[in-house]
Computed example of a mutant assay.
Amino acid sequence: MSEDRLLRALRATVREMFPRYDFLGKYRYRVLAMAGDRVDLQAVRKGAGLPDILPVPIASGMAGLSAELTPGAIVLVEFIEGDPQLPVITAFSRDGGSTFLPVSLVLDATDAVRIGEQADAVELGAATAVVVRDGDLVNIAGVQPGPGVVAVRLSLAPPPAQMLSKVRA
């Protein structure tokens, strides 16, 4: 038996024993569009024998996190338990290109979303001002007539009971 025939026979045997073998890895797919919380995808390597799959959910690995992905972004898809009927996006390719960042990102929780106490600052991007936290010292320039700065320490704690008033509407 020639080596090529032996190799083909071995491959056929492995495929027969493990029919879902092709669906046990992570595969690159390109984002075509979003449809609600599902992503329309296209296989990056057609020669890999993988299907173009539509639509696919995102399993980001973190509860409460969801994203609207940028068309053209590359994501990594796994097939749960090797089942081609159960594709899921499990990772995002860090190519450094313009499609890596999502269109929008949501982080939500039923109680609170907290930033660690050791964080020196909370930044919300170039389009917004600095986030003020409970107990932060805030400098306000130009509030008084003449030069100077007003410093205010914010407290988000409830006011004392004697400062509360009732209003009848």
Score class of each variant (00 low, 15 high):
residue 5 R to D: 03
residue 5 R to W: 01
residue 7 L to D: 06
residue 8 R to P: 00
residue 10 L to R: 14
residue 10 L to T: 13
residue 12 A to H: 14
residue 12 A to K: 14
residue 14 V to L: 14
residue 14 V to F: 09
residue 15 R to C: 05
residue 20 R to V: 00
residue 23 F to W: 04
residue 25 G to T: 01
residue 28 R to G: 07
residue 28 R to C: 12
residue 30 R to Q: 11
residue 32 L to I: 15
residue 36 G to Y: 01
residue 38 R to Q: 02
residue 39 V to H: 08
residue 42 Q to M: 14
residue 43 A to G: 07
residue 46 K to C: 03
residue 46 K to R: 12
residue 48 A to F: 00
residue 48 A to E: 06
residue 49 G to Q: 06
residue 54 L to M: 13
residue 54 L to K: 15
residue 55 P to V: 08
residue 58 I to H: 04
residue 59 A to G: 09
residue 60 S to C: 09
residue 61 G to L: 12
residue 63 A to N: 10
residue 63 A to F: 09
residue 63 A to Q: 12
residue 64 G to A: 09
residue 67 A to V: 15
residue 69 L to Q: 11
residue 72 G to N: 01
residue 72 G to V: 02
residue 73 A to R: 10
residue 78 E to A: 08
residue 80 I to E: 12
residue 80 I to A: 11
residue 83 D to K: 06
residue 84 P to E: 01
residue 85 Q to P: 03
residue 85 Q to K: 15
residue 87 P to T: 00
residue 87 P to V: 00
residue 88 V to E: 12
residue 89 I to W: 01
residue 89 I to Y: 03
residue 89 I to N: 00
residue 90 T to E: 02
residue 91 A to P: 01
residue 93 S to R: 12
residue 93 S to G: 03
residue 94 R to N: 10
residue 95 D to R: 15
residue 97 G to K: 11
residue 97 G to F: 06
residue 98 S to H: 09
residue 99 T to E: 10
residue 101 L to Y: 11
residue 103 V to L: 02
residue 105 L to E: 03
residue 105 L to V: 02
residue 106 V to N: 12
residue 107 L to T: 04
residue 108 D to G: 14
residue 108 D to A: 15
residue 109 A to K: 15
residue 110 T to N: 10
residue 112 A to W: 13
residue 114 R to L: 12
residue 116 G to V: 05
residue 121 A to F: 04
residue 121 A to V: 09
residue 122 V to T: 13
residue 124 L to R: 10
residue 131 V to E: 05
residue 133 R to H: 05
residue 133 R to V: 01
residue 134 D to K: 00
residue 134 D to A: 02
residue 141 A to M: 02
residue 144 Q to T: 08
residue 149 V to A: 10
residue 152 V to D: 02
residue 153 R to A: 03
residue 153 R to Q: 13
residue 154 L to E: 06
residue 154 L to H: 07
residue 156 L to I: 06
residue 157 A to C: 03
residue 157 A to T: 03
residue 159 P to W: 06
residue 160 P to A: 12
residue 160 P to N: 07
residue 160 P to I: 07
residue 160 P to L: 07
residue 161 A to N: 04
residue 161 A to Y: 05
residue 162 Q to G: 12
residue 165 S to P: 00
residue 165 S to Y: 08
residue 166 K to E: 07
residue 166 K to V: 09
residue 167 V to R: 08
residue 167 V to L: 11
residue 169 A to H: 07
residue 169 A to E: 09
